[in-house]
Simulated assay, not measured.
Amino acid sequence: MKRQTRCITARHATQACLVLLCLAEIGAAHAWSLTITSGSRRLFLHVGNGAVSGTSGTLNGTAGTSGVVNLVQVTVPVAQMGNGTDLDMTSNSTQSVSLYGDGNNTCPTPSSQVMVGAGYRRNSGAANATLSVSSPANLTSGTDTIPFTEISWTVSAPGSGAPNVIPAGTFNGGTLTLATVPGNTYFENCHSFVYANSAVRAAGTYNGTVTYTLSSP
């Protein structure tokens, strides 16, 4: 099995302020679904910052990993702790331009978006690859915990009218299958993360890491 993984960390703290996000204000989901020139089998996956895949539409970039693990975080104002108002999470990603290699400005505001892309090139072997994400049961701060189900994400791809292929969702404290990636296809969109803020938590910095995996038999 060919497999490539990347990680993103989610952190919750309880000291300062952050802008509120209303789910009702979120627009329709979109994604980029692009064609790749066929060739020897290769998987390409990125979450946040990463290396360009190579010449546009070929996935012929240097094999390996960028080694970057981006951070997504939110700080909950004391006066709003546990009031059930969803809070937008910020990102330290700076990746705005597509890694497909065409220079498209896929995620115009990476400080609130994380670019997620998955590509599968083939001329033989399995017809599809599978994109999944795994999360632990909880974010932790010492012995205190917050269920990972408190964190969800929405998706967008400005300027694209293509149907959503890497969907919005909520972490489940396990593994979620996000998308089936057909051969010689590249999917890409922007994920914006939201903390549900559904209960009062003990003060602290809560950490947890989620792992995105693209695989083909």
Rank of each mutant, 00 (worst) to 15 (best):
T145E: 00
T170C: 00
A168K: 12
P163E: 07
N172F: 11
A157Y: 05
N164G: 05
T170D: 12
A157N: 11
I166M: 08
V165T: 14
P147R: 00
A162I: 00
P158Y: 09
G161E: 00
T145Q: 12
S156F: 04
P158V: 06
W153K: 05
T170S: 13
S160M: 02
V155D: 07
P158I: 01
S156H: 11
E150Q: 15
T170L: 02
T170I: 13
S152P: 09
P167F: 05
I166A: 08
G173V: 03
S160L: 03
T149E: 14
S156A: 12
P167D: 13
P163M: 04
D144W: 11
T170E: 01
I146W: 12
F171V: 07
T143A: 15
P163T: 15
G174P: 12
P147E: 00
S152W: 00
G169Q: 09
V165A: 10
V155N: 02
G173T: 01
S156E: 11
P158T: 14
I151W: 03
G159H: 00
G159F: 00
A162Q: 14
T154M: 11
S160Y: 01
T154Q: 13
N172Y: 00
A162N: 04
D144S: 15
I151K: 03
E150H: 03
I166S: 04
A168C: 11
P163R: 04
N172G: 13
G159P: 01
E150F: 10
G173Y: 13
S156K: 10
I146R: 11
I166C: 06
P163K: 09
P158L: 12
V155T: 15
P167S: 06
S156W: 09
G174H: 00
T170F: 00
G174A: 14
G174E: 02
G173R: 06
G173L: 05
T149W: 04
I151S: 03
F171L: 15
E150G: 05
V155F: 02
T154Y: 13
S156P: 00
G161H: 02
A162M: 12
G169L: 05
W153R: 03
T154F: 13
A162R: 07
W153F: 07
G169D: 04
S152V: 07
A162S: 11
V165W: 01
G173C: 12
S156L: 10
G173I: 10
T143S: 14
S152L: 00
D144Y: 14
E150A: 14
I151T: 09
G173K: 02
V165S: 14
T143N: 12
T154N: 15
V155W: 09
D144I: 02
V165N: 10
T145M: 01
N172C: 07
F148V: 06
A162T: 10
N164H: 01
P147F: 06
A168M: 04
A162C: 07
V165M: 08
T145A: 11
W153G: 12
G169V: 08
